[in-house]
Design a protein around this nucleic acid. Structure first.
Lengths: 141, 141
DNA sequence: GCTACATCCTCTAGTGACTAGAGGAGCAAG
DNA sequence: CTTGCTCCTCTAGTCACTAGAGGATGTAGC
C-alpha cells in the first residue's frame, strides 16, 4: 500500500509548521494520520487539503473553534451554508471594527510623533499624550 | 498620615481592572504601593497617574516592554526623547501594516460572502475559497 | 556493514497579557 | 453582631502556538 508524505513534506506543502501540525492533531483539529512501521506520521491528499484549508482560514484570522465548525460543514456538503456564511460575516464585522480603531490609532500616533520636537523627554509630546488621555484627538479608544 | 485610595478605587479611576493592577505589580511594571494596617494596597496620586499612563499606552497597543521603557523615560525628563519617538514610530509602522493586511482581508471576506448563494455547503463560496488559496483576490496574505 | 546526518518521535515547559477561581481576612453599615 | 462587600494570596487556565530535551528512525555515501 502507498503511504502518504511524512510530516516535513506536509509542512512544506501546506505552509503549516511541523510542530503546529502535531499541535493541531493534539487538540483534535486534525485527525491522527496513518503511521509507518517506524511510528512516523504519513499524510495523504485529503489530510493535506485539510491542512491547507486550516492554514488559509488561520491567515484570514478565523479562530480555531470557528475552523472546527467550518471543517465539520465541509464534511457534510448537504447542509445549508448559513452557518459558514454567519461565521464569515461575524469575521467581517470584526475586521471592519479593527480597521476603524486602528485608523483612529494611526492618527493618534501620527499626531504624537509630529508633535515631538526631538528635544528632551520633559517636553515630549509622545510621553505627554500617553499620560493624559484628554489630549487625544478622538475619544474612540 | 493620609493613605491613598484602595485598589478598587484605583481600578475605577484608571480604567485598569483590579486583578490586572496586581498583575502589573507582580511583573514589576508598577511599584508595590503602600499598605494599610490590614495589609491592603493604597495608591497615591502618582500611582494613579502611572496606571492611567499604562492603560492609555496599552489601549494604543504598546507592549508591556515598550511601556516599561516609556515609564523609565518619564522618570528621567532630561533625557533626549529619541527613544520614545522611536518606540512610537515602530508602533505606527506596525499599525499601518496591520491596516493594510486587514483591508486586504476585508475585501477577501466580502467577496466570499457575496459569492455565497445561501444554498448548500457543497456550493458555498466561503468553504470553497478557504479550501483553495488560488481563488483569493490578492496573494498578499 | 558503518557512519554521518537529517528527520522524526514524545514530553514538558514557556510565551504574552491577562483572567478565573478557591479559600480566607478585613471593614463598614444597620 | 451579622450581612455583605472589598480585599488578600495563590494556583491554574486562556489562546495558539514555540522551544528544547532526549532519544529513535531513515537515508546516502563509503
Amino acid at each position: 500500500m502507498i503511504l502518504g508524505v511524512p510530516i516535513g513534506e506536509a509542512a512544506k506543502h501546506s505552509g503549516v509548521k511541523v510542530p503546529t501540525i502535531r499541535y493541531y492533531e493534539q487538540i483534535g483539529l486534525l485527525a491522527a494520520p496513518a503511521r509507518s512501521d517506524g511510528n512516523r506520521r504519513h499524510y495523504d491528499a485529503s489530510d493535506l487539503h485539510r491542512l491547507t484549508f486550516i492554514r488559509h482560514a488561520r491567515e484570514l484570522g478565523f479562530e480555531i473553534d470557528a475552523i472546527r465548525t467550518l471543517l465539520l460543514l465541509q464534511d457534510d456538503p448537504n447542509q445549508p451554508c448559513a452557518t459558514a456564511d454567519g461565521i464569515a460575516k461575524a469575521r467581517l464585522a470584526d475586521v471592519e471594527q479593527r480597521i476603524r480603531s486602528l485608523t483612529a490609532l494611526k492618527a493618534e500616533l501620527q499626531a504624537m510623533i509630529e508633535g515631538c520636537s526631538h528635544g528632551q523627554v520633559a517636553a515630549c509630546r509622545v510621553i505627554e499624550v500617553l499620560a493624559d488621555h484628554g489630549q487625544c484627538q478622538n475619544a474612540g479608544h
